[in-house]
Design a protein around this nucleic acid. Structure first.
Length: 860
RNA sequence: GCCGGGAUGGCGAAAUUGGCAGACGCAGCGGACUUAAAAUCCGCAGGGCUCAAAAGGCCUGUGGGGGUUCGAUUCCCCCUCCCGGCACCA
């Protein structure tokens, strides 16, 4: 602990035998409901309180919390998330920034449909009702949102721009149709979302296995930006390393080589070559088989006239799918079937057998590999099982190349070996071989160096009702035709029976489906799928900057003023999907010329979960803490303050009911101090130019507290220690209360301390802070009050305590003037009784003095 | 398997650049006020040993083991466990 944090010696040594003073009543109870109701009413009446407008004379600050899904009620995770954002917004306001702090609703999605089915309530009604009640909860909690910019994604004023963007994507060739698999419940005869598939079965028919169906669906070409999405992660230095790593893994860049193996014998419709992707082309002379994914197109050629082989392949496919659904794809045993067909290794002309194996997946690389058992663990297991040749072509390089070029234990998978048995490429390093062999393949026309990504294009079609209609038409004559921009929005109809079976719910609404082709004027059929809700959240934060624009999603110039988002705050569960789609959308809008920035979010903060009794809050565990109940019992300030105090914001917070009681007590303590000393602070007896020692001690503590709270806001966001620091200041004030009643603390100074305390508390506990601001006779909103200034000279201690160690062990402490020189400190240290005892009879070999920190005497 | 984050009193945690480990709070204990309780206020408090008791003194302590240093919760090496993400990725 730093010396400046020591309780002041003057206050600590002062004893107060007469306390508590019976003259001072202690029943000025803090009633949060009364205080909060008063300010709630005032804030509700002033809609412009938190309104933001671009202002070129002020530095802007865009602080944003991830918008919630309107499930019906806030949970503690929301409260924590918004308490962090709100504290930051208020702090920035007080520091003179032009703050944008909006809120909205991610209000399309499946739960509304589920609720519609179980409660017989239309999704729209259910959703809007939830929004109303959650908005009321947010207001009760006192969050400072600019509601004039509220965005509700399920309303046409918003989703029409989803449709507009979709047309732009289509124009740019970034939206396209392709066959893709969907979950299909045979009993419902309808498509299921992934969330509706439980243990491989339908959520409503627990005994019915969900099947797969091929459907034509819309895709967005996110892969156009694979490289940029990866590269720009390096620019996001204010993002958590964890999130950047997760995105890097998700994008999954991998450098390798494509090599064509010619098929030996007759070619079918699947073609005459097998292209494999490998990161280890240096091992190609060790390839002893080709392995295809069961769904590889060539496999169909091989099985067309070979029923038994076809049946075996079907089994492999079924296995893969089951394993994937169980989420344990690595656990299935490697096996496969020999097709008794052969391919020719273009490097050495060798004929090697083609197998179909269950460990090859179609959606990575090319769905075909060259199998090199000597240098790949999986290939090794497979070759062992089926007695396929294992041929060593890489040797390890040891410290002494001559002596250590011995056969390694197999499989030898290191990347830093040297080639052998590799024709003209023998005797060079793996890295060198990869370069030379890729170049050779390219020169000869049977391969090339390439880069593959794990990131795939984004399938956005949902066969669901409650989402943005995809603005496309199918005309018998003109084929796929986009809806004209002037015909937007394509309105999502109400009163759709979503319990009907077979395909998308909108398909059962003739007045929706039947339309006119804008090209030929003939009849056309509307697309009945809706968009993934991640489309809604990919660009919503741009809409906040210009929320009522009815000619464009937003005005680029206005967005330019506010962007990038200075601080984005949300749960880590959105680290991948939402945050990649948002980054993609920003790059897409930039290339459309709508905005200038490459990245939407400058700083990202992912807060921890709120847990209780060691587990995530959930109804089934019965450990849910309701924000409403906490607000009713202790007030909004206490609920907010506790969620900031109990743990640093990036860590999980273990909710303890007794903890919030402690916060409630603290707020009461602050309140009582103000009420009790209101008369003193407002009296005008003083004008003393120098403060009494007691007042000086308070002043020091006050400035030390300003520094600690400000530093933690700017730097680490450890609000828990901000609040601890404020508590310490309050404790010091309580310790000084006797001195205050004795008139040793000038009234003007006491008033200054009180104002400072209110300002420090304002970002965390706005209700109480506003009440006390008024109690101390101040006017106006605290958002317009200036954050207190730290004065280093006033914070400085006059005397400090220096610990004295002997051989690194604490033996004594000496009190010296803060600016004492080394000679003086050492002299005092050596004069200390305990230190003298510890060094008696020994020889001092070294004296270490760290100014202001400590003394260490090394003795022998 | 790979990547990221953790492990500190009975509990949540603090120690910001290598410098007094446990600030602040909860729970606990003692006291004041009270007929009593609640509320409030003051104080004690890592563990162990010593001492009749208190004061004091001594030893020990940040998941485990090693290292660097006058000095390590902090830096380096090895290991264990917990949480999160990705994964037959070729």
């Amino acid at each position: 602990m730093a010396t400046q944090d020591k309780p002041d010696t003057i206050l600590a040594t002062q004893s107060h035998p007469e306390r508590p003073n019976p003259d001072r009543p202690n029943d000025e109870r803090y009633d949060p409901q009364r205080v909060e109701k008063k300010w709630f009413d005032r804030w509700q009446q002033d809609a412009s309180l938190y309104a933001a407008e671009p202002d070129s004379t002020k530095k802007k600050f865009y602080v944003l919390e991830m918008l919630p899904y309107p499930s019906g009620a806030l949970h503690m995770g929301h409260v924590r998330n918004y308490a962090i954002g709100d504290a930051l917004a208020r702090y920035m306001w007080m520091n003179g920034y032009n703050v944008l702090h909006p809120m909205g609703w991610d209000s399309f999605g499946l739960p509304a449909e589920n609720a519609a089915i179980s409660n017989n309530t239309p999704p729209r009604e259910w959703t809007l009702r939830n929004i109303a009640s959650m908005k009321a909860q947010m207001n009760r909690l006192g969050f400072a949102y600019d509601w004039s910019r509220e965005v509700t994604t399920c309303l046409p004023e918003y989703y029409r721009w989803n449709q507009w963007f979709f047309l732009k994507l289509y124009e740019q060739g970034l939206a396209y149709r392709k066959n893709s698999k969907v979950n299909w419940c045979p009993k419902c005869a309808t498509v299921l979302a992934n969330e509706q598939v439980v243990d491989g079965c339908c959520w409503r028919h627990e005994d019915t296995l969900v099947g797969q169906r091929e459907l034509e669906q819309w895709f967005v070409r996110t892969t156009k930006y694979s490289e940029e999405l990866l590269r720009d992660l390096d620019k996001l230095e204010h993002w958590p390393e964890k999130v950047r790593t997760m995105q890097r893994n998700w994008i999954g860049r991998s450098e390798g080589t494509l090599v064509d193996f010619k098929l030996d014998g007759n070619a079918g419709p699947g073609g005459s070559t097998i292209t494999v992707f490998t990161t280890r082309v240096d091992t190609i002379y060790g390839a002893t088989s080709i392995q295809l994914a069961p769904e590889h197109p060539l496999v169909a050629d091989f099985t067309r006239h070979n029923q038994p082989l076809g049946a075996q392949v079907q089994q492999l496919i079924a296995e893969q799918r089951r394993a994937k659904e169980a989420g344990d794809i690595g656990a299935i045993e490697k096996h496969g079937v020999n097709t008794y067909r052969y391919a020719i290794n273009p490097f050495n002309g060798e004929k090697i057998p083609i197998w179909v194996a269950n460990y090859i997946v179609m959606d990575y690389g090319t769905g075909a590999i060259m199998s090199v058992p000597a240098h790949d663990e999986r290939d090794y297991d497979f070759a062992k099982k089926y007695k396929i040749e294992i041929r060593l072509v890489i040797l390890p390089i040891g410290d002494d190349p001559e002596a250590t070029m011995v056969e390694p234990p197999l499989p030898f998978v290191e990347h830093d070996g040297m080639t052998i048995n590799s024709g003209p490429f023998s005797g060079i390093s793996s890295a060198d071989a990869i370069k030379k062999m890729s170049a050779y393949a390219e020169e000869k026309g049977f391969g090339k160096a390439t880069v593959t990504y794990r990131l795939k294009d984004w399938g956005i079609s949902r066969q669901r009702y409650w989402g943005t209609p995809i603005p496309m038409l199918y005309c018998e004559k003109d084929g796929i035709v986009p809806v004209s921009e002037k015909d937007l929005p394509v309105i999502l109809p109400d009163n759709v029976d979503i319990t009907l079976t077979g395909g998308s719910p909108l398909g059962h609404v003739p007045e929706f489906v039947n339309a006119t082709c804008p090209k030929c004027g003939g009849p056309a059929r509307r697309e009945t799928d809706t968009m993934d809700t991640f489309v809604d959240s990919s660009w919503y934060f741009y809409r906040y900057t210009d929320a009522h624009n009815d000619r464009a999603p937003f005005d680029g110039k206005i967005a330019q003023y506010w962007f990038p988002i200075d601080q984005y705050i949300g749960g880590v569960e959105h680290a991948i999907l939402h945050l990649i789609y948002s980054r993609f959308w920003t790059k897409f809008m930039r290339d459309l010329g709508m905005i200038m920035n490459d990245e939407p979010v400058e700083r990202l903060f992912t807060q921890g979960m709120v847990i209780k009794d060691g587990a995530k809050m959930s109804k089934s565990l019965g450990n849910v803490v309701s924000p409403d109940e906490m607000v009713a019992r202790y007030g909004a300030d206490a609920a907010r303050l506790y969620s900031l105090f109990a743990a640093p914001p990036d860590r999980d917070l273990d909710w303890q009911d007794t903890g919030i009681e402690g916060i409630h007590r603290f707020l009461g303590r602050v309140y009582r101090f103000f009420v009790r000393n209101a008369a003193v602070a407002s009296s005008s007896v003083d004008g003393a130019s120098s403060l009494s020692p007691e007042a000086r001690a308070i002043q020091r503590k006050m400035h030390q507290t300003i520094k600690r709270v400000s530093d933690d806001f700017r730097g680490r966001w450890h609000f828990n220690t901000c609040i601890s620091a404020i508590m310490e200041l309050v404790n010091v004030l309580y310790g000084a209360e006797y001195a205050i009643t004795q008139g040793k603390v000038p009234a003007t100074f006491l008033a200054e301390v009180q104002r400072t305390l209110v300002l420090l508390l304002a970002p965390f506990a706005p209700y109480l802070a506003h009440e006390l601001w008024e109690v101390t006779g101040q006017q106006g909103s605290l958002l317009k009050a200036s954050w207190p200034k730290y004065d280093a000279a006033l914070a400085k201690e006059e005397e400090i305590e220096i610990p004295v160690q002997v051989n690194g062990k604490l033996r004594g402490r000496v009190i010296v003037p803060a600016d004492a020189g080394e000679a003086f400190v050492l002299e005092r240290a050596l004069a200390d009784d305990k230190v003298r005892a510890a060094i008696a009879g020994k020889q001092i070999v070294k004296k270490i003095h760290i100014p202001g920190k400590m003394v260490n005497l090394v003795v022998k």
